[in-house]
Amino acid sequence: MRKDYLLLKDISLKDERFRISHFFSLDKLLLSIKKVGLINPPMVVFRDSQYIIASGWKRVFACQKLKWKRIPVYILNEQDDKEIFIKILYENLALREYTLLEKAEILLKLKKFRVEERELIQTYLPLLGIPPAARFLEKYLAISKVKKEIKKIIHERNMSFVAVCLLLKFESKEMLFLIPLLKPLGQNKQKELLEDLYELCQRNRISAKDILQLKDIQRIQKDEKLSHIQKAERIRLIIKRKRYPTVFRWADAFQERLKKISWPDEITIKPAPFFESEHLFLSFSFKTRDEFLDKLQKLQAVAQKKEFSEILTHFNG
Protein backbone atom coordinates (compact mmCIF):
# COMPACT_ATOMS: atom_id res chain seq x y z
CA MET A 1 0.00 0.00 0.00
CA ARG A 2 1.39 3.40 -0.91
CA LYS A 3 0.18 6.94 -0.42
CA ASP A 4 -0.28 9.07 -3.54
CA TYR A 5 -2.35 11.83 -5.03
CA LEU A 6 -4.91 11.22 -7.77
CA LEU A 7 -7.06 13.50 -9.85
CA LEU A 8 -10.67 12.98 -8.82
CA LYS A 9 -11.67 12.51 -12.44
CA ASP A 10 -9.28 9.53 -12.59
CA ILE A 11 -11.20 7.66 -9.90
CA SER A 12 -14.11 5.64 -11.29
CA LEU A 13 -17.38 5.96 -9.42
CA LYS A 14 -19.09 3.37 -11.57
CA ASP A 15 -17.39 0.28 -10.25
CA GLU A 16 -19.13 -0.49 -6.97
CA ARG A 17 -17.67 -3.92 -6.27
CA PHE A 18 -16.46 -2.84 -2.81
CA ARG A 19 -19.23 -0.38 -2.00
CA ILE A 20 -21.50 -1.18 0.96
CA SER A 21 -23.01 2.24 1.85
CA HIS A 22 -25.52 3.92 -0.41
CA PHE A 23 -27.40 6.17 1.94
CA PHE A 24 -25.57 8.75 3.99
CA SER A 25 -25.40 12.43 4.76
CA LEU A 26 -22.22 14.34 3.91
CA ASP A 27 -22.95 17.36 6.12
CA LYS A 28 -20.66 16.54 9.05
CA LEU A 29 -17.89 15.21 6.84
CA LEU A 30 -17.95 18.35 4.69
CA LEU A 31 -17.66 20.44 7.79
CA SER A 32 -14.73 18.38 9.03
CA ILE A 33 -12.84 18.40 5.71
CA LYS A 34 -13.34 22.15 5.40
CA LYS A 35 -11.92 22.63 8.87
CA VAL A 36 -9.03 20.14 9.02
CA GLY A 37 -8.67 18.69 5.54
CA LEU A 38 -8.80 15.03 4.50
CA ILE A 39 -6.80 13.39 7.27
CA ASN A 40 -7.70 9.82 6.44
CA PRO A 41 -7.33 9.26 2.66
CA PRO A 42 -9.63 6.83 0.83
CA MET A 43 -8.23 3.51 -0.40
CA VAL A 44 -8.24 2.67 -4.09
CA VAL A 45 -7.15 -0.21 -6.30
CA PHE A 46 -6.21 -0.29 -9.95
CA ARG A 47 -8.53 -2.50 -11.96
CA ASP A 48 -9.32 -2.64 -15.69
CA SER A 49 -7.16 0.42 -16.50
CA GLN A 50 -8.74 2.62 -13.85
CA TYR A 51 -8.67 3.39 -10.17
CA ILE A 52 -11.71 2.22 -8.22
CA ILE A 53 -12.70 2.93 -4.65
CA ALA A 54 -12.05 0.17 -2.13
CA SER A 55 -12.99 2.24 0.88
CA GLY A 56 -13.96 5.88 1.43
CA TRP A 57 -16.92 6.59 -0.86
CA LYS A 58 -18.22 9.28 1.47
CA ARG A 59 -14.83 11.02 1.51
CA VAL A 60 -14.55 10.97 -2.28
CA PHE A 61 -18.09 12.38 -2.67
CA ALA A 62 -17.35 15.09 -0.12
CA CYS A 63 -14.17 16.15 -1.94
CA GLN A 64 -16.13 16.19 -5.17
CA LYS A 65 -18.72 18.45 -3.57
CA LEU A 66 -15.97 20.74 -2.30
CA LYS A 67 -14.73 20.91 -5.92
CA TRP A 68 -11.30 19.47 -5.11
CA LYS A 69 -9.36 18.39 -8.16
CA ARG A 70 -6.77 16.15 -6.51
CA ILE A 71 -7.10 14.07 -3.40
CA PRO A 72 -4.71 12.00 -1.32
CA VAL A 73 -5.32 8.22 -1.57
CA TYR A 74 -3.81 4.94 -0.46
CA ILE A 75 -3.29 2.67 -3.44
CA LEU A 76 -3.58 -0.98 -2.51
CA ASN A 77 -1.39 -3.48 -4.34
CA GLU A 78 -3.43 -6.49 -3.32
CA GLN A 79 -4.82 -8.33 -6.37
CA ASP A 80 -7.42 -10.49 -4.67
CA ASP A 81 -10.69 -8.53 -4.42
CA LYS A 82 -12.10 -10.84 -1.77
CA GLU A 83 -9.08 -10.29 0.47
CA ILE A 84 -9.34 -6.52 0.04
CA PHE A 85 -13.03 -6.52 0.87
CA ILE A 86 -12.49 -8.62 3.98
CA LYS A 87 -9.65 -6.39 5.17
CA ILE A 88 -11.79 -3.29 4.77
CA LEU A 89 -14.69 -5.00 6.46
CA TYR A 90 -12.56 -5.75 9.53
CA GLU A 91 -11.04 -2.27 9.49
CA ASN A 92 -14.44 -0.57 9.50
CA LEU A 93 -15.77 -2.97 12.08
CA ALA A 94 -13.40 -1.51 14.61
CA LEU A 95 -14.46 2.04 13.76
CA ARG A 96 -18.24 1.96 13.57
CA GLU A 97 -21.48 -0.02 13.72
CA TYR A 98 -22.75 -1.18 10.36
CA THR A 99 -26.37 -0.33 9.56
CA LEU A 100 -28.96 -2.95 8.66
CA LEU A 101 -28.61 -2.20 4.94
CA GLU A 102 -24.82 -2.21 5.10
CA LYS A 103 -24.84 -5.60 6.79
CA ALA A 104 -27.11 -6.90 4.04
CA GLU A 105 -24.82 -5.46 1.38
CA ILE A 106 -21.70 -6.90 3.04
CA LEU A 107 -23.21 -10.39 3.07
CA LEU A 108 -24.29 -10.08 -0.55
CA LYS A 109 -20.81 -8.93 -1.57
CA LEU A 110 -19.14 -11.75 0.37
CA LYS A 111 -21.42 -14.18 -1.38
CA LYS A 112 -20.48 -12.65 -4.73
CA PHE A 113 -16.82 -13.04 -3.75
CA ARG A 114 -17.65 -16.75 -3.37
CA VAL A 115 -17.37 -17.02 0.38
CA GLU A 116 -19.08 -20.31 1.25
CA GLU A 117 -22.51 -20.21 2.86
CA ARG A 118 -21.32 -22.11 5.90
CA GLU A 119 -18.52 -19.58 6.47
CA LEU A 120 -20.95 -16.72 5.99
CA ILE A 121 -23.17 -18.16 8.71
CA GLN A 122 -20.54 -19.28 11.16
CA THR A 123 -17.97 -16.48 10.76
CA TYR A 124 -19.51 -13.39 9.24
CA LEU A 125 -22.99 -13.34 10.78
CA PRO A 126 -21.62 -13.23 14.36
CA LEU A 127 -19.02 -10.70 13.24
CA LEU A 128 -21.85 -8.43 12.17
CA GLY A 129 -23.80 -9.09 15.37
CA ILE A 130 -26.31 -11.42 13.70
CA PRO A 131 -27.19 -14.85 15.15
CA PRO A 132 -25.39 -17.60 13.20
CA ALA A 133 -28.39 -19.25 11.57
CA ALA A 134 -29.21 -19.87 7.93
CA ARG A 135 -32.58 -18.15 8.18
CA PHE A 136 -30.91 -14.86 9.12
CA LEU A 137 -28.52 -15.05 6.18
CA GLU A 138 -31.47 -15.70 3.89
CA LYS A 139 -33.29 -12.64 5.21
CA TYR A 140 -30.32 -10.30 4.99
CA LEU A 141 -29.65 -11.42 1.43
CA ALA A 142 -33.28 -10.73 0.59
CA ILE A 143 -32.96 -7.25 2.11
CA SER A 144 -29.91 -6.57 -0.05
CA LYS A 145 -32.00 -7.17 -3.15
CA VAL A 146 -34.94 -4.80 -2.54
CA LYS A 147 -35.42 -1.78 -4.78
CA LYS A 148 -33.40 1.34 -4.12
CA GLU A 149 -36.42 3.53 -3.28
CA ILE A 150 -37.48 1.01 -0.63
CA LYS A 151 -33.96 0.83 0.77
CA LYS A 152 -34.03 4.60 1.03
CA ILE A 153 -37.11 4.49 3.29
CA ILE A 154 -35.63 1.66 5.34
CA HIS A 155 -32.61 3.89 5.92
CA GLU A 156 -34.48 7.16 6.47
CA ARG A 157 -37.03 5.69 8.88
CA ASN A 158 -34.42 3.56 10.60
CA MET A 159 -36.72 0.57 10.17
CA SER A 160 -36.07 -2.37 12.46
CA PHE A 161 -34.96 -5.75 11.16
CA VAL A 162 -38.32 -7.25 12.17
CA ALA A 163 -40.29 -4.56 10.31
CA VAL A 164 -38.11 -4.91 7.21
CA CYS A 165 -38.62 -8.69 7.23
CA LEU A 166 -42.37 -8.08 7.40
CA LEU A 167 -42.14 -5.62 4.52
CA LEU A 168 -40.32 -8.25 2.47
CA LYS A 169 -43.34 -10.50 2.70
CA PHE A 170 -45.15 -8.18 0.31
CA GLU A 171 -44.61 -7.95 -3.41
CA SER A 172 -42.48 -5.09 -4.76
CA LYS A 173 -45.54 -3.25 -6.09
CA GLU A 174 -47.29 -3.58 -2.75
CA MET A 175 -44.20 -2.32 -0.95
CA LEU A 176 -44.41 0.88 -2.97
CA PHE A 177 -48.04 1.32 -1.89
CA LEU A 178 -47.01 0.79 1.71
CA ILE A 179 -44.04 3.11 1.81
CA PRO A 180 -45.99 6.40 2.18
CA LEU A 181 -47.95 4.82 5.04
CA LEU A 182 -44.87 3.62 6.87
CA LYS A 183 -42.90 6.80 6.45
CA PRO A 184 -44.53 8.87 9.22
CA LEU A 185 -44.80 5.99 11.73
CA GLY A 186 -42.34 5.01 14.46
CA GLN A 187 -40.64 1.58 14.52
CA ASN A 188 -43.25 -0.21 16.65
CA LYS A 189 -46.20 1.09 14.70
CA GLN A 190 -44.55 0.22 11.42
CA LYS A 191 -44.16 -3.34 12.63
CA GLU A 192 -47.71 -3.48 13.91
CA LEU A 193 -49.19 -2.13 10.68
CA LEU A 194 -47.20 -4.51 8.50
CA GLU A 195 -47.97 -7.50 10.70
CA ASP A 196 -51.71 -6.79 10.82
CA LEU A 197 -51.89 -6.13 7.11
CA TYR A 198 -49.94 -9.24 6.17
CA GLU A 199 -52.00 -11.47 8.44
CA LEU A 200 -55.23 -9.95 7.19
CA CYS A 201 -54.17 -10.63 3.59
CA GLN A 202 -53.30 -14.20 4.46
CA ARG A 203 -56.52 -14.88 6.34
CA ASN A 204 -58.84 -13.28 3.80
CA ARG A 205 -56.77 -14.37 0.80
CA ILE A 206 -56.58 -10.93 -0.70
CA SER A 207 -53.70 -8.70 -1.67
CA ALA A 208 -52.46 -5.75 0.34
CA LYS A 209 -53.16 -3.60 -2.70
CA ASP A 210 -56.83 -4.62 -2.59
CA ILE A 211 -57.05 -3.75 1.08
CA LEU A 212 -55.37 -0.39 0.63
CA GLN A 213 -57.80 0.40 -2.16
CA LEU A 214 -60.87 -0.13 0.01
CA LYS A 215 -63.19 2.87 0.08
CA ASP A 216 -62.69 3.81 3.73
CA ILE A 217 -58.92 3.74 3.31
CA GLN A 218 -59.04 5.66 0.03
CA ARG A 219 -61.21 8.31 1.64
CA ILE A 220 -58.54 8.91 4.26
CA GLN A 221 -55.77 8.91 1.66
CA LYS A 222 -57.55 11.63 -0.32
CA ASP A 223 -58.48 13.81 2.65
CA GLU A 224 -56.32 16.90 2.20
CA LYS A 225 -57.07 18.17 5.67
CA LEU A 226 -55.21 15.29 7.25
CA SER A 227 -51.45 15.29 7.76
CA HIS A 228 -49.34 12.29 6.72
CA ILE A 229 -49.13 11.04 10.28
CA GLN A 230 -52.89 11.40 10.80
CA LYS A 231 -53.55 9.45 7.63
CA ALA A 232 -51.11 6.71 8.59
CA GLU A 233 -52.57 6.44 12.10
CA ARG A 234 -56.15 6.22 10.87
CA ILE A 235 -55.34 3.64 8.25
CA ARG A 236 -53.38 1.64 10.80
CA LEU A 237 -56.45 1.55 13.02
CA ILE A 238 -58.76 0.52 10.17
CA ILE A 239 -56.44 -2.35 9.33
CA LYS A 240 -56.29 -3.41 12.97
CA ARG A 241 -60.10 -3.41 13.18
CA LYS A 242 -60.27 -5.59 10.12
CA ARG A 243 -57.60 -7.91 11.51
CA TYR A 244 -59.43 -8.32 14.86
CA PRO A 245 -63.13 -7.79 14.02
CA THR A 246 -64.60 -9.65 17.01
CA VAL A 247 -62.31 -7.98 19.51
CA PHE A 248 -63.29 -4.54 18.22
CA ARG A 249 -66.97 -5.48 18.06
CA TRP A 250 -66.79 -6.29 21.75
CA ALA A 251 -64.86 -3.16 22.60
CA ASP A 252 -67.39 -1.05 20.68
CA ALA A 253 -70.33 -2.80 22.34
CA PHE A 254 -68.78 -2.13 25.74
CA GLN A 255 -68.46 1.58 24.97
CA GLU A 256 -71.98 1.62 23.57
CA ARG A 257 -73.40 0.21 26.82
CA LEU A 258 -71.50 2.79 28.84
CA LYS A 259 -72.97 5.51 26.70
CA LYS A 260 -76.45 4.07 27.22
CA ILE A 261 -76.21 4.36 30.99
CA SER A 262 -74.57 7.80 30.70
CA TRP A 263 -71.40 6.67 32.39
CA PRO A 264 -69.77 9.74 33.99
CA ASP A 265 -66.95 11.05 31.79
CA GLU A 266 -64.65 11.83 34.69
CA ILE A 267 -64.60 8.22 35.87
CA THR A 268 -62.75 5.73 33.71
CA ILE A 269 -63.96 2.17 33.52
CA LYS A 270 -62.00 -0.37 31.53
CA PRO A 271 -62.31 -4.09 30.90
CA ALA A 272 -59.25 -6.28 31.39
CA PRO A 273 -57.04 -6.43 28.28
CA PHE A 274 -59.00 -8.28 25.59
CA PHE A 275 -61.72 -9.05 28.19
CA GLU A 276 -59.58 -12.01 29.27
CA SER A 277 -60.17 -11.64 32.99
CA GLU A 278 -63.57 -11.00 34.51
CA HIS A 279 -62.42 -7.89 36.27
CA LEU A 280 -63.28 -4.36 35.31
CA PHE A 281 -60.97 -1.54 36.27
CA LEU A 282 -62.09 1.77 37.58
CA SER A 283 -60.12 4.97 38.03
CA PHE A 284 -60.88 8.54 38.95
CA SER A 285 -59.12 11.40 40.61
CA PHE A 286 -60.20 13.72 43.38
CA LYS A 287 -58.72 16.42 45.56
CA THR A 288 -61.25 16.87 48.33
CA ARG A 289 -63.61 14.76 50.37
CA ASP A 290 -66.54 16.36 48.60
CA GLU A 291 -65.15 15.54 45.20
CA PHE A 292 -64.61 11.98 46.35
CA LEU A 293 -68.17 11.69 47.64
CA ASP A 294 -69.48 13.21 44.43
CA LYS A 295 -67.76 10.49 42.38
CA LEU A 296 -69.10 7.80 44.68
CA GLN A 297 -72.60 9.17 44.30
CA LYS A 298 -72.28 9.12 40.54
CA LEU A 299 -71.04 5.54 40.69
CA GLN A 300 -73.93 4.58 42.94
CA ALA A 301 -76.35 6.14 40.49
CA VAL A 302 -75.05 4.13 37.54
CA ALA A 303 -74.87 0.99 39.65
CA GLN A 304 -78.63 1.23 40.23
CA LYS A 305 -79.34 1.01 36.54
CA LYS A 306 -80.44 -2.31 35.10
CA GLU A 307 -78.08 -1.90 32.16
CA PHE A 308 -75.12 -1.77 34.55
CA SER A 309 -75.79 -5.35 35.66
CA GLU A 310 -76.07 -6.25 32.01
CA ILE A 311 -72.57 -4.93 31.44
CA LEU A 312 -71.29 -7.15 34.24
CA THR A 313 -72.99 -10.28 32.98
CA HIS A 314 -72.50 -9.73 29.27
CA PHE A 315 -68.84 -8.85 29.33
CA ASN A 316 -67.93 -11.33 32.00
CA GLY A 317 -69.00 -14.36 30.11
Binding site: E199, L200, Q202, R243, Y244, T246, P273, F275, E276
Partner: peptide
Protein backbone atom coordinates in the same frame (compact mmCIF):
# COMPACT_ATOMS: atom_id res chain seq x y z
CA UNK B 1 -50.57 -22.75 7.52
CA UNK B 2 -53.27 -20.19 8.29
CA UNK B 3 -53.62 -20.96 11.99
CA UNK B 4 -51.80 -17.86 13.22
CA UNK B 5 -54.05 -15.50 11.26
CA UNK B 6 -57.20 -15.95 13.34
CA UNK B 7 -58.10 -13.61 16.18
CA UNK B 8 -55.45 -14.65 18.67
CA UNK B 9 -54.83 -12.24 21.52
CA UNK B 10 -52.55 -12.38 24.58
CA UNK B 11 -54.24 -14.29 27.40
CA UNK B 12 -53.70 -13.67 31.11
CA UNK B 13 -50.71 -16.01 30.98
CA UNK B 14 -49.15 -14.10 28.07
CA UNK B 15 -49.78 -16.91 25.58
CA UNK B 16 -51.65 -16.10 22.40
CA UNK B 17 -55.09 -17.68 22.30
CA UNK B 18 -58.43 -17.08 20.63
CA UNK B 19 -60.37 -14.10 21.90
CA UNK B 20 -62.45 -15.40 24.82
CA UNK B 21 -65.93 -15.29 23.21
CA UNK B 22 -64.55 -17.27 20.28
CA UNK B 23 -63.05 -19.82 22.66
CA UNK B 24 -66.27 -20.18 24.55
Amino acid sequence: SKITYEELVPGIDGKLRYFKPLRI
